[in-house]
Computed example of a mutant assay.
Amino acid sequence: MLLADDEAMVRAGVRAILGTDDEIEVVAEAADGVEAVEAVRRHRPDVAVLDIRMPRMDGLAAGAEIRRTVPETAVVVLTTFSEDSYIARALGDGASGFLLKSGDPRELIAGLKAVADGAAYLAPKIAHRIIQELSGGAMTRAAAAKEQVAVLSPRELDVLGLVGAGLSNAEIASRLYLVEGTVKAYVSAILQRLGVKNRVQAAIVAYEAGLVTR
């Protein structure tokens, strides 16, 4: 895992929190967005945790560059700022998670582990705001989403619904009695066929199309 924040004390605090979980290893740190991109290219971590406001290159630009050049590394935005424009840009550029520094440390660990396992994770406060936003014009969105998912096979619809419910590839495999590699292939195909960048965007489509049952 990579930690990128221009404040050394913040990096130390986050590293200390993550150090309480034996399954998480921080392989590199960065003090700005340029360093973050270079470190990801060098270390190829499963997850890059990026602050938004950093010098030389902000976390949103760094996240977009990481997703473009090292797509196997998932991006999580960790910040004190939760303005809608930041959320929209981060998710639009392919971030897999958005967490607030003011959140519970247990939420931080759970969120990063979920993303590392192939799922998407939004801080509860952020998820609530997105759902509120989606509730406006819900009928129009639902019709568009149902048309969008019409290109998928029945099995792909099953997988998409579970992605929308926040399940990881391993959990989906267990639920549908598939091997994890098959689920990964399904998810990749679904993202391509829906024309979305990541699991968060796919989950929103699943929610709007009425595929989320859990």
Rank of each mutant, 00 (worst) to 15 (best):
T80S: 15
P154L: 05
A202P: 00
V27R: 06
K113D: 11
L122P: 01
E133S: 10
E180S: 06
V75H: 00
E23N: 10
S82L: 05
A110Q: 07
S168K: 07
G137M: 06
A143V: 12
V10G: 05
A165E: 05
A202M: 05
R89S: 14
S168W: 03
L18W: 04
I172T: 07
R15F: 08
A28D: 04
S102C: 15
T80R: 13
R141D: 02
I87C: 03
L122M: 13
D22P: 07
E65N: 09
E65V: 04
L178V: 12
D51P: 04
G137W: 05
R42A: 15
D46A: 14
G164A: 14
V47I: 12
L112R: 03
A185T: 08
D32G: 11
R53F: 15
A31T: 11
H43L: 12
G111Y: 01
E72I: 04
V34F: 11
T73K: 07
V70R: 02
L191H: 06
Q192Y: 10
A110K: 08
G97E: 02
N198H: 05
D93K: 00
M54Q: 05
V34A: 12
I24C: 06
A39T: 03
L211P: 02
E25Q: 14
I204N: 03
V212P: 02
L100V: 07
R53L: 14
G59N: 07
D6E: 10
E35D: 14
L2I: 08
E171P: 01
S102R: 13
D158H: 09
G181K: 06
E35Q: 12
G59A: 14
T20E: 10
A4R: 00
L108I: 11
V200C: 03
P105Q: 15
V149D: 02
R175N: 10
G19C: 08
A4P: 05
L160C: 08
D84Q: 15
R68F: 11
E65H: 10
A12H: 13
R214N: 11
P124Y: 04
L2Q: 05
A4Q: 05
S174K: 13
A170L: 07
R214S: 11
A138L: 12
S153P: 07
G92T: 07
A202T: 00
A74F: 03
F98P: 03
L211W: 02
V200P: 00
V49M: 06
D5L: 03
D58S: 10
T182Y: 04
G166Y: 07
Q192D: 14
D46Y: 09
A4G: 09
I126D: 00
M57N: 09
L176K: 13
D21I: 11
K184H: 13
Q132C: 09
D58T: 07
S168L: 10
L91H: 05
R44Y: 06
V151N: 11
F81A: 04
D84H: 09
V10P: 01
S85D: 13
K146N: 11
M54H: 05
V26F: 09
V14I: 15
Q148A: 06
A31Q: 10
A202E: 00
L157W: 06
G97Y: 01
L178T: 06
R53Q: 14
E156V: 04
L160Y: 01
L60M: 08
R214Q: 14
G33T: 01
R199C: 04
A165S: 14
M139S: 07
E25A: 12
A150I: 09
I52L: 08
S153L: 06
G118S: 10
V205H: 03
S168D: 09
N198V: 02
L122T: 03
